[in-house]
Simulated scan of single mutants.
Amino acid sequence: MTPIRVLLVDDQALVRSGFAVMLSVEDDIEVVGQAGNGAEAVEFAATHDVDVVLMDVQMPQLDGIEATEQIVDAGRGKVVILTTFERDDYLFDALRAGASGFLLKNADPDELVGAVHAVSEGHALLAPEMTVRLIGKLTEQTRQQEQAPARGVELLERLTEREREVLQQMARGHSNGEIARGLFLSETTVKTHVSNLLGKIQTRDRVQAVVFAYESGLVRPGA
Rank of each mutant, 00 (worst) to 15 (best):
residue 130 M to K: 09
residue 130 M to W: 05
residue 131 T to I: 08
residue 131 T to E: 15
residue 131 T to M: 11
residue 131 T to K: 12
residue 132 V to L: 14
residue 132 V to C: 05
residue 133 R to S: 09
residue 133 R to A: 08
residue 133 R to H: 13
residue 134 L to N: 02
residue 135 I to L: 15
residue 136 G to I: 00
residue 136 G to H: 06
residue 136 G to S: 13
residue 136 G to Y: 05
residue 136 G to K: 06
residue 136 G to W: 03
residue 137 K to R: 15
residue 137 K to Y: 15
residue 138 L to I: 02
residue 138 L to C: 02
residue 139 T to S: 15
residue 140 E to P: 04
residue 140 E to M: 08
residue 141 Q to L: 15
residue 141 Q to R: 14
residue 141 Q to H: 07
residue 141 Q to I: 09
residue 142 T to I: 06
residue 143 R to P: 02
residue 143 R to H: 10
residue 144 Q to I: 09
residue 145 Q to M: 12
residue 145 Q to L: 12
residue 145 Q to R: 15
residue 145 Q to D: 15
residue 146 E to W: 03
residue 146 E to T: 09
residue 146 E to D: 11
residue 146 E to V: 11
residue 146 E to N: 05
residue 147 Q to H: 13
residue 147 Q to C: 04
residue 147 Q to W: 04
residue 148 A to P: 02
residue 149 P to C: 09
residue 149 P to H: 08
residue 150 A to P: 12
residue 150 A to S: 13
residue 153 V to Y: 08
residue 153 V to G: 10
residue 153 V to M: 11
residue 154 E to P: 05
residue 154 E to H: 12
residue 155 L to I: 03
residue 156 L to T: 01
residue 156 L to M: 10
residue 156 L to R: 02
residue 156 L to I: 04
residue 156 L to H: 00
residue 156 L to G: 01
residue 157 E to Q: 15
residue 158 R to I: 03
residue 158 R to G: 14
residue 158 R to E: 14
residue 159 L to I: 02
residue 159 L to R: 00
residue 160 T to R: 06
residue 161 E to R: 12
residue 161 E to C: 04
residue 161 E to P: 01
residue 161 E to L: 10
residue 161 E to N: 10
residue 161 E to S: 11
residue 162 R to P: 00
residue 162 R to I: 00
residue 162 R to D: 11
residue 163 E to L: 02
residue 164 R to Y: 04
residue 164 R to D: 04
residue 164 R to I: 01
residue 165 E to H: 05
residue 166 V to W: 00
residue 166 V to N: 00
residue 166 V to L: 00
residue 167 L to R: 00
residue 167 L to E: 00
residue 167 L to W: 00
residue 168 Q to I: 08
residue 168 Q to C: 06
residue 168 Q to A: 10
residue 168 Q to T: 12
residue 168 Q to G: 15
residue 168 Q to V: 06
residue 169 Q to D: 13
residue 169 Q to Y: 07
residue 169 Q to T: 02
residue 169 Q to E: 14
residue 169 Q to H: 13
residue 169 Q to P: 01
residue 170 M to F: 10
residue 170 M to E: 07
residue 170 M to G: 01
residue 171 A to S: 11
residue 171 A to W: 03
residue 171 A to N: 00
residue 171 A to C: 02
residue 172 R to V: 05
residue 172 R to C: 06
residue 172 R to I: 03
residue 173 G to L: 07
residue 174 H to D: 08
residue 174 H to L: 15
residue 175 S to K: 08
residue 175 S to Q: 10
residue 175 S to A: 09
residue 175 S to D: 06
residue 176 N to G: 14
residue 176 N to S: 12
residue 176 N to F: 05
residue 176 N to A: 13
residue 177 G to R: 11
residue 179 I to F: 01
residue 179 I to T: 03
residue 180 A to Q: 03
residue 180 A to T: 08
residue 180 A to V: 08
residue 181 R to A: 13
residue 181 R to P: 03
residue 181 R to Q: 13
residue 182 G to S: 10
residue 182 G to A: 13
residue 182 G to W: 01
residue 183 L to H: 05
residue 183 L to D: 09
residue 183 L to R: 03
residue 183 L to Y: 04
residue 184 F to L: 11
residue 184 F to H: 13
residue 185 L to I: 07
residue 185 L to H: 07
residue 185 L to G: 11
residue 185 L to T: 08
residue 185 L to V: 07
residue 186 S to C: 06
residue 187 E to D: 14
residue 187 E to P: 06
residue 187 E to K: 15
residue 188 T to N: 14
residue 188 T to V: 14
residue 188 T to C: 06
residue 189 T to Y: 12
residue 189 T to A: 15
residue 189 T to W: 07
